[in-house]
């Protein structure tokens, strides 16, 4: 009996040692020498492996960041400035602060405003649907409603609103990794600066069709009337292909465009007060009137000197 025990222990010990030696040899043979800073950088990364930075994952980002001469092409949208400062500290680089961004859904074609005109009966995937045809509503630019963006989001920041049929971004969870923007075959989702205290304005429509066709397809669409462009005093509204776009770097959040938009396509979020459209309109009209008067006065002034001269002559 005791002999059996001794033999068992002996055999197992020898076997264990043998395997350990083999393992050690293999580990030595296939050892990969890596820059230790890669590990350090990876440690400060968020570890979501979302790919928002353009690399396959956090490790790939770290690997590339360590090798890069500077950090201009490296930015972790999830970790933001805080993480980038840490990365910069490890690698001895400097980074510029970037404004925090958020995903914005630029379609407001709710089920009510944009009725379906045919029935889609395929795989519930926006990509499949977009490759097949223009979509089940009259609008061939808007949200297809199958939720590819929701599936692409690794942070649970997107969800489909069952009433409107449109995706909703949870600002507190959104890390602006951009996965949803890439997943959307219609290019509706845009990363925009969060804005001061989260206040921002954007045109919630990307329909490039002409006014009448758009109007027929969707009640909430930008019809390309260009009233907003005429109203804006900051040159923030770009008007291209029958659809308006607000340049976030120029927008001063005055909400004048919002007041004039006939379809409500211009959205303002996180403002403390609701828009008093009448007051804003009155204000703008007053300003325009004054401007017109001033212009008239200037014109008159320009013409006026000519007359006295005539008289003198």
């Amino acid at each position: 009996m005791s002999q059996t025990i001794i033999w068992t222990i002996a055999i197992l010990t020898v076997l264990g040692l043998l395997l350990a030696i083999i393992l050690w040899f293999i580990a030595e043979r296939f050892k990969v020498v890596e820059d230790p800073r890669i590990d350090e950088v990876e440690k400060v990364m968020p570890g979501a492996n979302c790919g928002g930075c353009g690399f396959a994952g956090c490790r790939a980002f770290a690997d590339s960041a360590v090798k890069a001469p500077n950090l201009d092409n490296h930015y972790c949208p999830v970790g933001g400035n805080e993480v980038m400062q840490k990365v910069a500290a490890i690698l001895g680089h400097e980074v510029k602060e970037k404004a925090p961004m958020v995903a914005v859904v630029r379609c407001n074609g709710t089920c009510e405003a944009r009725p379906t005109v045919n029935d889609y009966d395929g795989l519930a995937s926006c990509k499949v649907k977009a490759a097949l045809y223009a979509g089940d509503t009259g609008c061939s630019f808007g949200c297809l409603g199958c939720g590819d963006c929701v599936n692409a989001c690794t942070f649970g920041a997107l969800s489909m609103d069952p009433v409107t049929g449109l995706p909703v971004v949870d600002e507190t969870k959104c890390t602006a990794c951009g996965a949803c923007a890439k997943a959307c075959p219609k290019g509706i989702i845009e990363l925009r600066p969060k804005g001061p205290r989260g206040m921002r304005m954007y045109v919630s429509c990307v329909n490039k069709d002409k006014g009448p066709a758009v109007k027929k397809a969707c009640a909430n669409a930008c019809i390309g009337c260009s009233l907003c462009e005429k109203t804006c005093t900051h040159g923030a509204i770009v008007f291209e292909n029958n659809v308006a776009y607000i340049d976030p770097s120029k927008c001063k959040l005055c909400r004048e465009c919002e007041a004039f938009c006939p379809t409500g396509a211009i959205h303002a979020v996180n403002f403390p007060k609701p828009l008093d459209a009448a007051a804003v309109k009155a204000r703008v009209q007053e300003r325009k009137k004054k401007a017109a008067e001033a212009a008239a006065a200037a014109k008159a002034a320009q013409e006026a000197p000519a007359k006295p001269i005539e008289k003198e002559a």
């Binding site: 379906t116 005109v117 045919n118 029935d119 889609y120 009966d121 395929g122 795989l123 097949l132 045809y133």
Partner: peptide
């Protein structure tokens, strides 16, 4: 009827 659309 409303048209039904699906991939082949």
């Amino acid at each position: 009827n409303r048209l039904l659309v699906s991939p082949s």
